[in-house]
Structures are given as structure tokens and as C-alpha cells.
Computed example of a mutant assay.
Amino acid sequence: MPRARIAAGAALLAVLLLGAMPAQAAVAAPDGDTSGTARAGTQDRHAAAAQTAVRGGDSLYAPGRVCTVSFNATDGTDDYAISPGHCVTGASTWYADPAMTVPVGATAGSSFPGNDYGLIRYTNPDVARPGEINTGTGEPVDITGSASPVVGQSMCHVGRVSGLQCGTVEAVNVSVNYPEGTVNGLFRSTAHSEPGDEGGPAFSGNTALGFIVGSGGGSTFYQPVSEVLAVYGLTLS
């Protein structure tokens, strides 16, 4: 159902007030020497990675697909990007750019159906992974914690297609049927979304709530992030 798009900057301000890989080895040249063109190519890729940061709301790429990073998290040893399970399942290596020249990490696990979450383990130390959300407005949101959503709570999400959208939580513990099976324990909001927004982070103020896994009937459905953190023993970065 069409819905008037909320101005990105104003919507973000409103919710903020309410929520008051190891280093690459040099590629050998044809004569076995690692200098010259081969080394320069490696250095170029290394430099590109050093300038790359992956935040919540950013895209990662694998052959034949693109997934949105919901939030960055850590187990104290390794860092991970959280994303929908239906998106990361079946892919192994991920990149920060569509041309797939800057490697980021590898799929570390996923659950779908039943749940809808997956993990990508960062393996490239040159790629930064700050604990913030890229809202597309030029004003990132620092995420300081997570919480379970509450009916009536004001919130926003950032979709890869629709951008920053805001609304309220309509329902919790919702089940959605997919061709692959049923996903349980979701929550639903009035915030507008479009196909391709899956994975977009949902938050209230500086608190992470979950991420988009689908939409229908004028509502958007989300996987709560608190469940993902508990299952894998993670905390948000």
C-alpha cells in the first residue's frame, strides 16, 4: 500500500529524541618475482580495503547476490556482520564492492527457515567495522545496545531500496510463512519497506531492535537481533 515517504532527516531526529582476512599474500609475477606489477596490484587492493568501512545498512556482495549488513557484532575474538539467513545461505566469500575486489569475510553460520539470521565473519583486518548505522542521510547512528521490541514503540529502519523509514512496532512474536517454511518470533511495524530492503537495520534511538526480513499487507517484518546475539554469544560492536 503506498505510503508517504517520511523526510529522512526529520524522521531520524524524531526517533533519536524518542529513543533519547588475514593480509593478502603478494601475487607472484609470471617469472616468480613478487615485485613489479603483481605487487602493485596487491598493494592497490590493500589500500582500497584500508579505506573501507562496513556499517549497518551497508551492502556486501557474493557471486549472484547482495546482502545488507544489519549490525556488526563480536564474540571478543572475532568480529561478525549480521544479516538475514535467507540471504547469506549458499554463499561463502563476501566482498565490500560489486566488482568483488575488496574481500571482507566468509559465511560463518545461518538459520532459515524457523529463524532468519546469518553471520559473516570478518577476515580482512584492513576493513573497518564500526558499531554504527549508515542511515544514508550523512548522519550515522551510533548503536550502544540492543533490546526486545515493544508494541507501540517508535522506531526506524534503513532499507537498501527505500532508505530511512520510520513508524511504530505493531506486534511481536509473529510468524510468517515462506515457500521454504515458517519463520517464527518476528516482530512487525508500520514503517514502509520495499523488495530489496531485507537486512536493513531497525532501531529506536541508539538501541538495535532487529532487521528487515520481509514485508506484506502494508507492514514490515523483522528478525529480533537479541535472539541472534544470544544464540551465538555475541555483543554488538
Rank of each mutant, 00 (worst) to 15 (best):
P2I: 10
R3W: 04
A4K: 07
R5A: 14
A7C: 06
A10T: 12
A11S: 14
L12C: 04
L13G: 05
V15C: 08
V15W: 02
L17Y: 01
M21P: 03
P22I: 03
Q24E: 14
A28G: 11
P30M: 09
P30Y: 03
P30I: 10
D31F: 06
D33S: 15
D33M: 03
G36I: 06
R39D: 09
R45N: 05
A47M: 05
A48R: 15
A48G: 06
Q51T: 12
A53K: 11
A53L: 09
V54T: 03
V54E: 02
G56T: 03
D58H: 12
S59C: 05
S59E: 11
L60E: 00
C67A: 15
C67H: 02
V69D: 10
V69I: 15
S70H: 01
F71W: 14
A73T: 13
D78Y: 13
Y80V: 11
A81T: 02
P84F: 08
P84A: 15
H86K: 07
H86F: 09
H86M: 06
C87Q: 08
V88N: 00
S92I: 07
T93Y: 04
A96R: 04
M100F: 03
V102M: 13
V102Q: 12
V104D: 00
A106M: 06
T107P: 03
T107K: 06
T107D: 04
A108T: 02
G109M: 04
S110T: 12
P113H: 07
G114D: 10
N115C: 04
D116W: 00
Y117P: 01
G118H: 05
L119M: 08
I120M: 03
Y122W: 14
Y122H: 08
Y122M: 10
Y122K: 13
N124M: 08
N124D: 14
D126G: 13
V127F: 04
V127Q: 09
A128T: 12
P130F: 13
G136K: 09
G136Q: 11
G136H: 07
T137R: 11
E139I: 08
V141L: 06
D142K: 08
I143D: 00
T144F: 02
T144S: 15
G145S: 14
P149A: 09
G152C: 05
G152E: 06
Q153T: 04
S154Q: 13
M155C: 10
C156K: 06
H157I: 03
R160W: 02
R160N: 14
S162K: 01
G163C: 05
Q165R: 15
V169S: 02
E170A: 11
N173M: 08
V174W: 05
S175I: 01
V176Y: 05
N177M: 09
E180R: 11
T182H: 06
V183I: 13
L186R: 01
R188C: 06
R188I: 01
A191P: 07
H192K: 06
G196K: 09
E198W: 00
A202Y: 00
S204E: 07
G205S: 09
G205V: 14
A208M: 02
L209Q: 06
L209E: 07
F211M: 12
I212K: 03
G214W: 00
S215F: 03
G216F: 13
S219E: 08
F221K: 03
Y222A: 13
Q223F: 00
P224T: 11
V225N: 01
V225S: 13
L229E: 07
Y232I: 03
Y232N: 15
G233V: 11
L234C: 04
T235E: 15
S237R: 13
S237T: 15
